[in-house]
Write a protein that binds this DNA or RNA. Structure first.
Lengths: 150, 150
DNA sequence: TAAGATTGATCTGTCAATCTTG
DNA sequence: CAAGATTGACAGATCAATCTTA
């Protein structure tokens, strides 16, 4: 069978997507570190934990919330416990489980950086787009997401 | 000053973007490794090298072509030389420089996997989108890219 | 001095065991 | 056996320091 090839328009759009992904992510993480001393991975876990009742979520559910696998959660939690941002607690329901809890230092860190991060996303992304752009972007990306495996 | 906040529509679009970025990149790299034994970083460097005259590009220019900094290029080239995909050569013009050359094994690897990768991008991304979607996506992302620093 | 490149330290992510409990 | 979690090995990315040459 003859292999399919991307059209010019598709190639162009694909290169744009790759470039935005690279530079936008890099710039957001740079600002996160500069403004609040948090890495992207730390921020990712602190967001759902700071919003949870008692600042505590089961490791399994934390992974599901952010779309990470078990081992990734385990490694990252270990690093953040060492940094004093998180603490481990036993899981009452299930002896296999682990409860992950945000510490006071973790809460201070996320609350200090959250407004600057929201401002950065607005400045770098949404200040460049009008309502129609945002709607079109969400529509197109949602179609892609819906067809992705799992 | 009161901090700005994202609207509901903006939050939704942002979450969609993050999710697509995570799952799409992961799935593409998984297939690349499965179908051709190449990692994403290896593929990224092999593409411009396979298209260059003599299969050779100066390290500085290779970095510019893919948007990587010096040290990232240096580390990745070192790993790929060890794997036999690339070779180093002296730079005639400038004694500080390094020429990076694709090996026969590197060329075989990229040529073996390129069609499957194009098919994967078509299947995972563009089969989900009509022409209007692609155009809208490219327009919106280009606006973001144009305003990003550097 | 600045540019090109390397190196080592550290942080991140994935994969393949492994261990424990349901 | 499945699921939840940990661990170790390895590939990847960033940063600062260093070395050589323009």
């Amino acid at each position: 069978v003859a292999p399919r090839r991307l059209t010019e328009r598709q190639s162009g759009a694909w290169r744009t997507f790759i470039a935005v992904q690279q530079h936008l992510t890099a710039e957001l993480e740079r600002r996160l570190l500069r403004d609040g001393g948090l890495t992207g991975a730390e921020f990712t876990l602190l967001v759902p934990l700071s919003e949870a009742p008692d600042g505590m979520i089961r490791a399994r559910d934390l992974g599901r919330a952010v779309g990470w696998e078990r081992s990734r959660v385990s490694h990252q939690v270990a690093r953040m416990v060492k940094r004093g941002l998180l603490a481990r607690e036993d899981c009452a329901d299930d002896a296999r489980g682990l409860m992950v809890k945000i510490t006071d230092a973790g809460r201070r860190a996320i609350e200090a950086v959250a407004p600057a991060h929201a401002e950065a996303v607005l400045e770098l992304v949404f200040d460049a787009l009008d309502d129609a752009d945002v709607q079109a972007l969400d529509t197109a990306l949602s179609r892609v997401l819906a067809r992705l495996p799992r």
